[in-house]
């Protein structure tokens, strides 16, 4: 496996350092060749930067990829936005040699060159394709069997597909496969692929952002989901923080929101506190409580075994 630099992005390091904590614990536990490299900037965020200056958007992303190129390593990120933006620019430059030359003529002035050799992956497809479901299963000490998990993919984990090329952009499967490998049920529900709507918060339309969050959370409540699992800091902000704001206004939806790396960490035996899950705004305790109760129950195999080996109805 090639070494990779972790691209943390601004949101995780600024607002959710506990996501960095669980990600580091998981990467170490799986003994994956990860490292931090100096010099990354914002990816940059598409909706804020690209709308104002496309050439700065391209130049900044190209510089970030160039850093990984120089270190001869790939990039893996636990943020969907970062991967999607970097990959979008990498794809654009690959098919536009004129633009690539323009970018490189500027990068040359600071001693860098965009080659585009670094492979860019989001953490979830990376775990599915490179780490592999078997290895994930082997590392798990505790199963999530009996729990109903509602996945929220996060648009930019899989789209735009011409740049990311990692799953079906309209009907993805990889995240589901991992959840099932962990023993849990990955629910099917009508709004599964609906965008979280956090983007509305970034354009001064907070009420509509809450409206969008409510659509999905209400559905999950009515279907009895035990938790929502995702791997995008922006979606996390939308469902964890905005759900908390709704609760403060008297609307309790009670859906614990769990980051992909936290779920893996729990399965490997770390406690919720060690993973920093007590820093979520929406309470994760109901999920942990139900899970712990399920773990205490003997599994089906043990019950059958017990019945076969003790005096049953046939004496």
């Amino acid at each position: 496996m090639k070494d990779f630099a972790v691209f943390w992005g601004c949101t995780i390091q600024t607002r959710f350092p506990f996501i960095e904590k669980s990600t580091r614990l998981v990467l170490d536990e799986f003994k994956l060749p990860h490292r931090d490299i100096d010099g990354f900037t914002c990816c940059p965020e598409k909706s804020l930067i690209n709308n104002i200056d496309h050439s700065l958007f391209v130049l900044t992303a190209a510089r970030n990829v160039a850093l990984a190129d120089e270190h001869d390593c790939d990039i893996v990120s636990p943020c969907t936005g970062c991967v999607s933006n970097l990959a979008t620019v990498k794809g654009e430059l690959k098919y536009n040699p004129v633009e690539k030359n323009e970018v490189n003529s500027l990068l040359k002035e600071v001693g860098r060159e965009f080659k585009g050799t670094a492979k860019l992956s989001h953490l979830v497809p990376f775990f599915h394709d490179v780490v592999g479901l078997q290895t994930i299963k082997q590392k798990m000490k505790k199963s999530f069997s009996g729990l109903k998990i509602a996945l929220h993919y996060g648009c930019h984990m899989i789209r735009p597909s011409h740049a990311l090329k990692n799953d079906d952009p309209l009907n993805p499967k990889k995240f589901d496969n991992i959840i099932r490998a962990l023993g849990a049920e990955s629910m099917n529900f009508p709004t599964k692929m609906m965008c979280c709507g956090q983007g509305l918060d970034r354009v001064d339309q907070h009420d509509l952002a809450l409206f969008m969050a409510r659509v999905k959370l209400k559905e999950l409540k009515s279907l009895g989901a035990d938790a929502m699992v995702l791997c995008c800091p922006s979606c996390f902000l939308q469902f964890d923080n905005n759900q908390y704001l709704m609760e403060k206004e008297g609307e309790k939806l009670g859906i614990p929101v769990i980051y992909f790396t936290e779920l893996l960490g729990l399965g490997m035996g770390y406690s919720a506190e060690e993973l920093g899950m007590n820093q979520h705004r929406s309470d994760c305790a109901p999920f942990i409580k139900k899970w712990e109760a399920l773990l205490k129950k003997p599994d089906d195999e043990a019950i059958i075994e017990n019945d076969l080996n003790t005096a049953g109805a046939l004496g």
């Binding site: 943390w8 390091q13 506990f18 904590k21 100096d38 010099g39 990354f40 900037t41 510089r63």
Partner: peptide
Amino acid sequence: LGLPEPAKSGAEEFKKL
């Protein structure tokens, strides 16, 4: 949380670019 020092940012070079 016991996290290491964050990596250095590329702010200066970015401003130049």
